[in-house]
Design a protein around this nucleic acid. Structure first.
Lengths: 181, 181
DNA sequence: ACTTTTATTGAACAATGTTCATGCTTCTGC
DNA sequence: GCAGAAGCATGAACATTGTTCAATAAAAGT
C-alpha cells in the first residue's frame, strides 16, 4: 500500500480489509503503524543495500568510479522505488516513541558502501574521520536525489539528474583528493 | 506554535484558543492549514533569504568563498530555526491540492544566491546549465544540513558540521572548476 | 430604522489510530 | 477425547483532528 499510494495512503482500515481481517487484528501483528512502517522500511533498506552492493562490485575500477557508480545506483533505486524510498525519510516517529535499535542498525549499514572506497582513497584518515566524510558524501548525494525527484520545483528529467549526480560526485571526490594534499 | 512544538504540534483547536477565537473562525483567515503552513513557510523563507544575502555580501572576496559562506549561513539558519526550517520540507500538501504560485516563487528565490557567484565562476555556461548546477549545489548542501541536524543517526556537534560543510562545499567547487578545464 | 453583508460561534461530521470486552480457536497436559 | 489455558479475531467504541455549517451576532450601507 505504501508503494502504491505513498505513506499518507496507508490506512489501518484499508490495510485490514486488504489482508482480510478486522481493524483491531492488525495490532496482533504490529504494535503501532510506526512499527509497520519501520518494518517495511527495513525491507526497502535491505533491497537498497543489495542494489548498492551490486553497483560497488560491478566493473573493477578505481575507488572514485566505484563511488560514482554507488551514487548513480542510489539515484536509480530511488527513482524505481519512489514511494518506498520516500517513506524512509518522510516518516516521523509518533510522539515520545523512539526508533528501535534494529531499525537504526538497518540505516547504518548503508554507510559501509561509501566507507570502503573512501578508506582506500584516504588511507591516512582515521576511522572516525572517514565515517564523517562518508556520511557527508551520502548526505550530499541524497540531497540531490531527494530534491531532484521532487519534481515540484524544476522538472529535471531522470537522465539529466543522473548525469548531474555523477558530475557533482566526481567533483566532490576530486576536490577532496586535491584538498588533502 | 510550529516554532515551539514542530509541525506536528500545530493543532487547529490549540491555535484557536491561543489567538482567542472559536475553532471555525480560523477558516476565515485561512482556507486550509496547508495555506497556514505555507504562509508561515513564506516568512521563514524570507528570513532565510535575508540571512543568505547577508552572508553573500559579507567580506568581499572570491565567488568560491562567497559560496562557502552561503552554505555555512544556510547551516546556521537551519540550526537557529530548526523547527521552522524543518517545516519547510516536512510539509506535504493535502491530497489533490497544489502548491500555489506565490509559494513556489518564494522557494525559487533561494537559488538566486547560488546562481550569482556560479555565473561569475563559469561565464561560459548557459543560463540553464547554471540553474541546474545551482540547484545541485543547493541540494547537496541541504542534504548535509538535513541529515546533520537530524542527530538521530550520528550525533555530530554543530561546529564539526559547519567545518564539514565548508570542506565539502569547497571540494565541490574546486572539483567543478578543475573538471571544466 | 431597516436591510444586507460579514464575522463568530460551537455543535456536528468525517477520517483515522487505537483499545477493549466478548466470543471463538487452538493448543496442552492428562 | 477433553477440560482448561492461552492466544486470536471481531467490531463496536473512544480520542484526536481537520473541516463544515446553521444559527446568531456584529457591522456596514442606505
Amino acid at each position: 500500500m505504501i508503494a502504491g499510494r505513498g505513506l499518507a495512503g496507508l490506512k489501518t482500515r484499508d490495510l485490514a480489509r486488504e489482508i482480510g481481517c478486522a481493524n483491531g487484528a492488525v495490532y496482533n501483528l504490529v504494535a503501532d503503524i510506526d512499527e509497520l512502517i519501520l518494518r517495511v522500511g527495513s525491507r526497502t533498506l535491505h533491497r537498497l543495500d543489495e542494489a548498492l552492493s551490486a553497483a560497488e562490485g560491478a566493473g573493477e575500477s578505481s575507488p572514485q568510479e566505484a563511488l560514482v557508480r554507488i551514487a548513480i545506483a542510489y539515484c536509480d533505486f530511488a527513482a524505481d522505488n519512489l514511494q518506498l524510498w520516500r517513506a524512509l525519510f518522510e516518516h516521523r516517529m509518533g510522539a515520545g516513541k523512539v526508533v528501535p535499535d534494529w531499525s537504526v542498525e538497518d540505516q547504518m549499514r548503508l554507510f559501509r558502501h561509501i566507507y570502503q572506497p573512501l578508506a582506500t582513497l584516504f588511507p591516512k584518515r582515521s576511522r572516525e574521520e572517514l565515517g564523517i566524510t562518508a556520511r557527508s558524501l551520502f548526505s550530499a548525494v541524497h540531497g540531490m536525489v531527494a530534491l531532484g525527484l521532487e519534481q515540484k520545483l524544476v522538472a529535471v528529467p531522470l537522465p539529466a539528474l543522473r548525469k548531474e549526480i555523477a558530475g557533482l560526485a566526481r567533483a566532490m571526490i576530486d576536490g577532496l583528493i586535491a584538498r588533502q594534499r
